[in-house]
Design a protein around this nucleic acid. Structure first.
Lengths: 255, 255
DNA sequence: AGCAGGCTGTGATCTATATGACACTCGATG
DNA sequence: CATCGAGTGTCATATAGATCACAGCCTGCT
């Protein structure tokens, strides 16, 4: 499974490398490493002086940081096709923890190899730029969430996000089954809250028939109500006009 | 001042374009636009379908978002040499507001032109990737701050950051004069707090001789104490071991 | 089977920080 | 020079959510 032949097929399937020729993928496969991690295993830790860039092949990984006291904050979940460890590309040390969130298969490329490919195929650079810009936007949204929304709002917002990413809509009832097992603790770490608060609010959601749990997986029964919760933000009076420049976009010109 | 000649010299000075030949800069100058904005003017707003990529030449700009109620959150301050509007590159709409924080001169390049340059000079792509990776890391730090630190901690942390970016150290007293005028409201918008709270805490800092104000500018008298405040995070008991993987890095193996 | 450890659930406190409502100080502007 | 508005300072109050401290439950292991 970790023969050059196998690696070839693994690389073939990766989006980023779609523009490469057979020949080039072949060459890359020679030099790539495949690694497997069991759920919970650490893939990268901050300060790792690694010169490897990784691509997720199978499974999912979580990127998180820890406070001095050991509180976790999940920054993002990585999907198959996602690239990480890009700081190596840039000569910087990794700054976050990356851990297998499910059993995961990753493909590691040496920095030089990757750079060489990048030089030969600027479109790959564009691809990467696109990916980074996306991640940046995601991060900006996360900041907005933390600042503008209260915990129920943030929770509603992640649930919707998870629903979009891992959800399977029931054609009959319209319910969205989230095919990813997450503990309350995980959810709490995604939204900057405590486990207890998440438990409480989730109980409330359940009580109101907004969500439910089936076979230990979340089910979103009323996405629209979650949506509403996510849009209503936390308290805060409006700033004077000049601070909220006229002509704000968005569907709701509510106020 | 906005002749091709002038534009040439403006572009010359931009870091990103250092690898270009005279000839190429020349060509770029033909097609670039120079724009000037007075403090407070809006440069980009969310939803702008612009196909321009910008580079800050002079002055500073702030990138921020607004909640529905009009609360502002400053995502980052842009310096001369910084690139923005990169979402255009990627075919997405801008998602934040960009506003001149001082009188500002920016240089705008059409997407096609920029992409062409990118294709011809993959190193520029790498440069951009580097910049984006840096911004991403910055955003991750901001998230950590919001989640792990209380307001005094976050305030201490921005002040230090501003000190590093715009500070002039007094060789005699060691005090750091921050050469950037920021209102309490601005500071509040950077750390996700209210103006009142910032005022109060700043008063506390002043009372303890940690900071001071001179000619309406912040002066950091005791950077070390700010540092300490920034490192002590908010309440929170330690998580069990497995959640804070052994061998955390960082200079402080304090705990 | 049976037990231990991770999850979930719930309540009683406590506190940081938002809210709302003012007064005061400047520096700019007519 | 009078005034006006932006920025600052302060206080009294309310509250979301963290903390602490349990108790019951599955589930996977031995």
């Amino acid at each position: 499974m970790t023969t050059p032949r196998a690696r070839f097929w693994y690389l073939r399937g990766v989006d980023v490398f779609r523009v490469l020729s057979e020949r080039e993928v072949d060459r890359l496969a020679e030099r790539a490493l495949l690694r497997q991690y069991a759920r919970g295993e650490v893939i990268l830790r901050p300060g790792d002086p690694s010169d490897l860039v990784f691509v997720v092949k199978e499974g999912r990984a979580k990127v998180s940081t820890y406070s001095v006291e050991g509180r976790e904050q999940i920054l993002t979940l990585l999907e198959p096709g996602d690239l990480f460890g890009e700081l190596a590309l840039v000569g910087e040390q990794e700054s976050a923890h990356v851990e297998a969130f499910e059993d995961t298969l990753v493909c590691a490329l040496r920095r030089e190899d990757f750079e060489q490919i990048l030089r030969a195929h600027p479109e790959i650079g564009l691809h990467l730029i696109r990916a980074l810009a996306g991640r940046l936007r995601q991060a900006a949204e996360e900041i907005e969430n933390l600042v503008f929304r209260d915990v129920p709002g943030r929770l509603a917002s992640v649930l919707l996000r998870l629903g979009q990413a891992y959800g399977v809509q029931d054609p009959h009832t319209g319910a969205i089954r989230v095919a990813l097992r997450m503990t309350h603790h995980d959810l709490a770490s995604m939204i900057g809250a405590t486990r207890e608060t998440v438990t409480t609010i989730l109980a409330r959601f359940r009580g109101e028939g907004i969500t439910d749990v089936e076979h230990r997986l979340m089910v979103i029964l009323q996405p629209d109500r979650l949506q509403a919760l996510a849009s209503g933000s936390r308290r805060g009076r409006a700033r004077p006009e000049e601070y909220a420049p006229a002509g704000l976009r968005g569907p709701e010109e509510a106020q």
